[in-house]
Every structure is written in C-alpha cells, then in structure tokens.
Design a protein around this nucleic acid. Structure first.
Lengths: 116, 116
DNA sequence: CAGCATCCCGGCAGATACTG
DNA sequence: CAGTATCTGCCGGGATGCTG
C-alpha cells in the first residue's frame, strides 16, 4: 500500500472523480491503440449517443487526458487521441478490469441475494 | 493488458460502477484495518454526513463488499467490516491512489489551463 | 449513537431536433 | 459527419429534524 491515508480531502479522490462517470473509462480504453474518430468510437462502443460521446470527450480533454485534433475538411473530420497523461491511466484501468473479470460473479450474486 | 475488450456492456464496467460514488472507495479504504463503528468512520474521514455514511455503507453491504454487525446494547452499537470480497478491492484502489499521488498535479494543472 | 424521513439541489445521461 | 441546444428523468449527495 503506497497511500497511508484516504480521507475526504485526500488526493486519491482525484483519480476516482476522473472515472466516476459512465463513459470516461470506457472511452480511455477505446482510445488505447491510437487516435479515433467519433464515428469509430460510437461503432465500437455501442450504446452511447453522439451528444454524450462529445460531452464525455470534452470532459476528458478538460482534464488533460485526451487531445482533440480538428481538420478543416468537408465533410469535417475530427480525431481524439490519448495524451501522455491519459495513457498512464491504462494500467490502473486494466487493474480494475481484471478485478471485475475475477470477482464480477460474486458481486452479482450478492446483489441478487439482497434482492429477495 | 488482461481485458481484450471494453465496450458498453463489458463486465469491466461493473468495477467502475462499484466505485463511481463519492464515498465508496473512501469507506472501503477506511475499513482496511478491521471493523469500524460509524462514529469512528465519520471522525477519521471527515466531511461526510451521518445519513450519507449509512446510505453508502448499506450500498456496499448490498454489493457484498461490507458486512454489518449490530449488537443489542444501550446505547446501540454497530460495526461494519470488509468481507473477503471487499478486501480484494484494496489493491486496485491503492493502484489508483498511487496514480493520483503521481499524476494529480498534472490533472489539476490541465484543469486550470482550460479555465482561463 | 445509529438510523430513518423529508426536502432540495446539481450533474450525468438519454432523446430529439437542428446547424455548419 | 461533428457538434450544439433543449428538455427530461434519475440518482447521489447535503441539510435538517425526529425516533428507538
């Protein structure tokens, strides 16, 4: 354990706030192999509306995790790419993915148990 | 990277949903060393209201991450404790804590940059 | 002390329609 | 195709007061 405290105003909170949205982690992961266009992202992810996609990407851009590239063409072309900082989140995200892969069943079982 | 895909309906979403609340990760971390009473938790964490504390603990209990022990005493005494499943989340949480410790400044710098 | 009931607020997300 | 504007609903979070 590297963090000795974890309180209300702890800096560690920052990392969770970054991924506390429905799509943030999904988009970072979808961008892991390089620049992608919004259309591509919508197709590969599925279930995300164009508005929410833009909204989420801009939020990531605001936090310095994603860089936006706009090309003056017709029809317009835009690409989003992970920044160096954004790329450093891939490993932590994968840690949680691995956890879910291993323990997801237990969580769902507990949920169903408390339903009845 | 252990997860090959990360889409809208991916199981990895489960892990982020678990920690997508303001206090979930904070409470798990605060319980890492053993059972704690609500009063203790409020004191060590700070900035969380009694209602939200109970609300969050019950949510964790629902997901099988925390166990609640109630003792029939006067005044009433209650303790919350991490389950085996809940304890498996400590390492992933610490991964993010370490990330925030290392990259928190960069995120805050990016935020302030996009403000002006 | 632990916890519930109530009311309120803000942000995320979804659906839809429209602009360049 | 990319993005915006608007409206809507929902849930988490906070404040307050009351009960056992």
């Amino acid at each position: 354990m590297t963090t000795d405290a974890y309180l209300a105003d702890c800096r560690a909170r920052l990392a969770f706030d970054l991924l506390s949205n429905t799509w943030n982690a999904v988009l970072i992961w979808a961008l892991r192999e390089g620049p992608r266009r919004p259309g591509e992202l919508r197709e590969t992810i599925g279930g995300i509306s164009p508005k929410v996609l833009t909204q989420t990407l801009r939020r990531l851009e605001f936090n310095g995790l994603v860089k936006r590239h706009a090309y003056a063409e017709v029809p317009p072309r835009v690409e989003y790419e992970l920044t160096t900082l954004g790329r450093t989140l891939l490993t932590p995200i994968d840690t949680f993915g691995a956890w879910a892969f291993e323990h997801g069943d237990e969580v769902m079982a507990a949920q169903e148990r408390h339903d009845g």
